[in-house]
Every structure is written in C-alpha cells, then in structure tokens.
Amino acid sequence: MEPIGIFILATICQFYSCAQNVSDSVERMQYASVAGEEYLEGEKIDTNLDDKVYFDFDKSTLDADDKNLLEQYLPAIRKAKIVRLEGHCDERGTREYNLALGERRALEVRDFLIIKGVSGKKIRVVSFGEERPIKNASNEKAWAENRRVEISLY
C-alpha cells in the first residue's frame, strides 16, 4: 500500500509544480498565438483517433474512457508543436456560465496531459461555451455530442 500512496503523492506534487510553472507562460502564449490561429489550421496533424472527449451535464470530470483515449494521443502529442483544446457545452443553462464550463472542461484535459508529461507550453485552451454545437437540436443525443472537448494537433 505504502508505495502506491507515495506514488500518488508524488504525482500530485509533480502536477502542482508543473501547473504553477506553466500557467503564466500559457497566458502569454495564448495571446501571442491569437493572431496566428488561422495559419496554424493549415498544418493540422491527422491522428486517426477520435478527436473528442465527452462530458456529463454541468460536469468537467474525465472518466476512464476519456483518459484512455487521451493516453493514446500521447505519442502524437509529443511530436506535435501545438495542442489545441477546445471546450464546448450543450445548449442548456446560461451562455456565460457555459463559456466558463467549456473552459473548465478543456483545462481538465490540459491538466491530465500535463500529469502525463506533456509540456504545458504547447497547449492552447479555448472555450466556445454553447456557441458552437455539433448537432443543432434539442434532445439528449445532441446534447451528449455537444458536451465535448475537441483535440487538435499542429
């Protein structure tokens, strides 16, 4: 039992130190990258993996499947220059709250990647809240598809 506990503790510590170091530079990078966003679109890397992870209503936690998918991404991410994470919500609830929630979701993915050793400097996070649904319909199926984080590599 003990080794496992120590391992967890170490992981948490690592996560914290990474997050601390990274946060400032991410913000600056974000702004620096704003203008270059469209130019980056052209060099998108195709991974043959599902480029979306999905969430429950008003939740931003990753389940085992999501984590599994993200782990499959790791080799490609290591090669990529930039990882773009785009958070989205379904239409239910208020728009501004959903904007924050979409960001929360994208950050959850970012934090997971950082724990897995991806440099925070490569990661761009953006939220569109409920403004860009995949399915423009009002039913459970559409909502489930719209609550997502889209991953794209450049």
């Binding site: 997050a19 946060s23 991410v26 913000e27 501004e96 924050a100 960001e103 929360r104 994208a106 970012r110």
Partner: peptide, 9 residues
C-alpha cells in the same frame, strides 16, 4: 466582467 487567469474565472 469575468477574467479567467489560469483558467479560473
């Protein structure tokens, strides 16, 4: 307004 530093609005 809302500002989100390090993703915390």
């Amino acid at each position: 307004l809302v500002v989100s530093f390090s993703g915390n609005p």
